[in-house]
């Protein structure tokens, strides 16, 4: 069997990075063709480094990687898209952190991730364009859950198999599905979902970014959907994504 190539080129988005050794950085990159990679960017902490800016968080970057024994080592890095607009607004930046955190949580090393990669790039572009950061997060959550095999069922009740009627239904976290009031009795983990929230969830789940940009939601609906999807994600990954705490802090800040 042929050995994997020791030098390869790939394009990815930087999800995480941490300092390593004297002046290096260890970066986690999501690529379309190779899934999630942990790479070493040597000297990237030096202000004069040629690579430093190109391996900053959320950058879409074209990488030439030399496969070492433990990590791939970044030989060259060139920005494809800097997503510079994210750093112009705190809400947008906090949302980008959350998207990267969710991606890192759901995608394991070695998983195929072409769909998640496309979704992440699409959501970051949408965020950068100045959309409602909350909407971008909900869109990303719903589509990420779908791609990772946890698509919430929003149309049929798994108990009786009937189409859900336009009424307050229960979302059963263990089932990952909306349940009609008759079948909801006796089910433990769940959350009541208003008719408005069900409509928004269905719309976000089946629509493209271009259509979702037209949505305008009240604060109440935003809060209801955020709470529901947040609880569902917690039930799937079993711990709250760390970056959620910062989003909540930013939401409490006074308006500019």
């Amino acid at each position: 069997m042929a050995a994997p190539p020791r030098l390869f080129r790939t394009v990815g988005v930087v999800l995480r990075r941490r300092d390593f050794d004297e002046a290096d950085r260890l970066i986690t990159v999501l690529t379309r063709d190779r899934g999630k990679l942990r790479l070493l960017a040597k000297g990237a902490r030096k202000i004069s480094s040629r690579k430093a800016a190109h391996v900053d968080l959320f950058r879409q970057v074209d990488l030439l990687v030399h496969q070492g024994r433990t990590f791939g080592v970044v030989s060259q890095a060139e920005t494809v898209h800097p997503f510079a607009g994210l750093a112009e607004d705190l809400e947008r930046l906090a949302a980008a952190h959350y998207l990267a955190d969710l991606t890192d949580t759901f995608v394991g090393e070695g998983d195929t991730a072409a769909g998640v990669y496309d979704l992440l790039v699409e959501a970051l572009q949408w965020l950068e364009s100045g959309c409602d950061p909350k909407l971008a997060q909900r869109y990303f959550e719903l589509h990420l859950l779908d791609l990772e095999g946890y698509r919430p069922e929003l149309y049929r009740c798994p108990g009786c198999g009937e189409w859900l009627e336009e009424q307050v239904n229960l979302f059963d976290f263990a089932e990952g599905s909306m349940v009609c009031p008759n079948c909801a009795e006796g089910r433990g983990q769940g959350r009541r979902v208003s008719v408005g929230a069900q409509k928004v969830l269905r719309f976000l789940q089946r629509s493209a970014v271009t259509d979702c940009g037209l949505l305008r939601l009240s604060d109440g609906l935003h809060t209801e959907i955020e709470g529901l999807l947040g609880d569902y994600i917690r039930s799937v990954v079993e711990w709250p994504p760390r970056s959620r705490r910062f989003i909540e802090t930013v939401q409490r800040l006074p308006e500019q």
């Binding site: 994210l86 750093a87 930046l93 906090a94 952190h97 910062f246 500019q256």
Partner: peptide
């Protein structure tokens, strides 16, 4: 001058400007 530094600067600016 990186994304973590920007997040910190923006957060502090939001608290200090008022």
């Amino acid at each position: 001058p990186n994304m973590e530094g920007e997040a910190t600067a923006m957060y502090l600016a939001r608290l200090i400007r008022p």
